[in-house]
Design a protein around this nucleic acid. Structure first.
Lengths: 233, 233
DNA sequence: GAGTGGTCTAGACCACGGT
DNA sequence: CCGTGGTCTAGACCACTCC
């Protein structure tokens, strides 16, 4: 008789998903404990544990010690985006990447930035305006602020040939990142740089980066018209 | 002698991250194999494996059999968004949720939709226009198409009191989702429903859902002015 | 072929948190 | 308290892939 292939965690995940979908364990239902499932499916508890842990990470179930495992009311999955360096994103698409520094200015932090990044009004910041092109077509306009109190050696870089994004990722360690996605109505300046009409809608990403509680940098990135950030899950 | 607390996988992750950040293993470098690390850190290989597996999932390292583990050129983390049911998103923020059906229409699939979703021109689709409010303020305008060939029982729902998003998530199993984020310039209709000016920039999400290769539904969701999708990582 | 990661097992101890 | 998930171990076999 064919020995049934060893039962793996992926198989378990599939079986559990099936039981959830076909209503055996409806939303909110209490799923049997790991030991029971291990017996039922004929595998080790560790295998069940891995399957259930991943389902929990994916947002399908809720697990609590003692309380057990329950199916979520709305089994919603999480989207994952790889936030890459812009040069890589463009080159991956097969286009040629070009970078241009528009403007570089050192000053004390404006008040709105102080509030946003928790800086002192006397802190020095470096402001950069940059353009990123994909095959000579405008791809992204970057408005970057670097906290020189936290990243002093940025003051010595001219950023003429390397973008701040790429330099920072390579040179400066960070611990936390916040991303905010939104839409921006194109101003005259933006329309000019991104070669679009005034009032066009621009997909916008704000990125803030910290190292252990102190802010390193803040950037607003405006993408050209028609840009879409896509993900499969 | 104080027995050093048992070495856990989180500790290993932290140690590896530290070695990457301080340059011990620079971008592209080959990280020692699991057995070596297990000896070095004084734990079982399974523990190292879990740590490295998670770092790989987070996009910090690349792992290949035989080739070994390498630090990614740009150790960038992935953003995670929990894509929730809109009602839950609003209610979590403490506001009251209100839903309104604007329009419901059954017809054959228009050609652009056929192309997008791989439908036949004779396929029946259900089109819905809906509004979602947060504390009576316009929050999202939803333009939804449901493939009735794949979800026939949607034809029997009037969607007057429950949104298609919520109904679908609850009633219809799916296997794949694609999300696209972009920006849209407000038309007269959108400005009217979302209570904003014509030409305002609207954050937009397109969501396409499949079950084992056949498309179930496609939706374009326009958010009110000022909406930001945020994530920390 | 041989080295590396991928996975499974059987058993154990621990920590959280309902009861 | 004590059941449940969370984690670790030591050992094993497998599968992929580079050489």
């Amino acid at each position: 008789m064919a020995k049934t292939h060893r039962v793996g965690y992926q198989k378990i995940k599939a079986l559990v998903m099936q039981s959830i979908r076909n209503g055996t364990w409806g939303p909110g239902a209490l799923v049997p404990g790991e030991v029971d499932l291990a017996v039922q499916y004929g595998c080790a508890r560790a295998t069940v544990n891995r399957a259930m842990r991943e389902l929990a990470e994916e947002g399908i179930i809720d697990r609590k010690r003692k309380a057990g495992t329950r199916v979520k009311q709305s089994p919603i999955r999480q989207a994952k985006f790889s936030i890459s360096v812009i040069r890589e994103e463009i080159e991956t698409s097969g286009a040629a990447y070009r970078y241009m520094l528009v403007n570089r200015m050192q000053s004390t932090a404006p008040s709105w930035l102080c509030a946003k990044l928790d800086l002192k009004p006397t802190d020095q910041v470096l402001q950069l305006h940059c353009m990123h092109y994909s095959d000579k077509r405008p791809f992204q306009y970057e408005d970057r602020w670097i906290n020189l109190s936290a990243v002093p050696n940025a003051a010595d870089i001219d950023f003429e040939t390397i973008g701040p994004n790429e330099w920072l990722v390579r040179e400066v360690p960070f611990s936390d990142v916040e991303l905010k996605f939104s839409a921006t109505r194109a101003t005259n300046t933006l329309a000019d740089f991104l070669d679009c009409a005034v009032d066009d809608a621009l997909f916008t990403v704000e990125r803030t980066t910290w190292l252990n509680g102190t802010n390193l940098t803040f950037a607003r990135m405006y993408f050209g018209v028609g840009y879409q950030l896509a993900t499969k899950l």
